[in-house]
Simulated scan of single mutants.
Amino acid sequence: MIDLYFWSTPNGYKVSILLEELGVPYRVIPVHIGKGEQFQPEFLAISPNNKIPAIVDPHGPDGEPIALFESGAIMMYLAEKAGAAGESFLPAGVRQRCEVIQWLMFQMGGVGPMLGQAHHFRKYAPETIPYAVDRYTNEATRLYRVIDKRLSEAAFLGGAAYSIADMATYPWLRAYKWQGQDIEDYPHLKRWYLEVRGRPAVQRGLAVLEEKVDRSGAKPDGERWNNLFGSAQFDKH
């Protein structure tokens, strides 16, 4: 059974969705990032960058346990480990595989970091900085246009078939309003968004730790803000 170190963030959902799609048994180990649990030594031994998600597979490639952090690396590992079932989400053929991986890297290098900055400056920053709000809202718009154009040419990001690239990207687009976007402006993206959202495994993946999700919309403050965005990130752990 896979141990999934998880909190209810877009990067966490990427892995829970894939595990549900693969039907792989897993155990959720909550890491409450608002309480600073990501800085605990036992978690840092698994995820030295103090970020979720992370996994521990007690039966790694050589039969020994393996620990992995970075959601994209975790997704590739899980898809490959699953064999034939995983090949539907990360193809074995070089051309198709490269198509999927490049869009996974697009999410890892662009969608996640830039939309995360849009979230921060539009919703969480302690003061409004117009330059930052405009910069990251505009970058979100650009990325949405890239995705919309791609989905005008292919059914899914990696091509004709649903893949780990779609699973990685969808959780980040759920908060499109936070990013200053209107999904109605992107018809091809909207078609894809609704199709991915409707998958039963996606719904199950998004339900992980649902009881822990803060739906109040309140901005974190005090120790919680410090653990998420403040000096706790820069302390020596």
Rank of each mutant, 00 (worst) to 15 (best):
M1L: 14
I2S: 10
L4T: 03
S8Y: 13
V15R: 08
V15A: 07
L18Q: 08
G23I: 11
P30H: 10
V31K: 14
H32L: 01
K35S: 11
G36L: 02
G36F: 00
G36D: 01
F39Y: 05
F39P: 00
L44F: 03
P48C: 09
I55V: 11
P65F: 13
A67L: 15
M76F: 02
Y77A: 12
A84I: 05
G86I: 05
L90R: 13
W103T: 08
W103H: 08
V111K: 07
L115Y: 08
L115R: 04
G116E: 08
H120M: 14
H120G: 12
R122N: 14
P130W: 11
Y131M: 12
Y131L: 13
T137H: 10
D148E: 11
K149G: 04
K149E: 12
R150F: 01
A160K: 15
A161W: 02
A165N: 03
D166S: 00
M167I: 11
P171C: 03
A175F: 09
E184S: 12
L189H: 05
R197P: 00
G198S: 14
V202Y: 04
V202T: 03
Q203E: 07
A207C: 09
L209K: 09
S216C: 02
A218F: 06
A218R: 13
D221E: 14
D221W: 00
N226G: 02
S231N: 11
K236S: 13
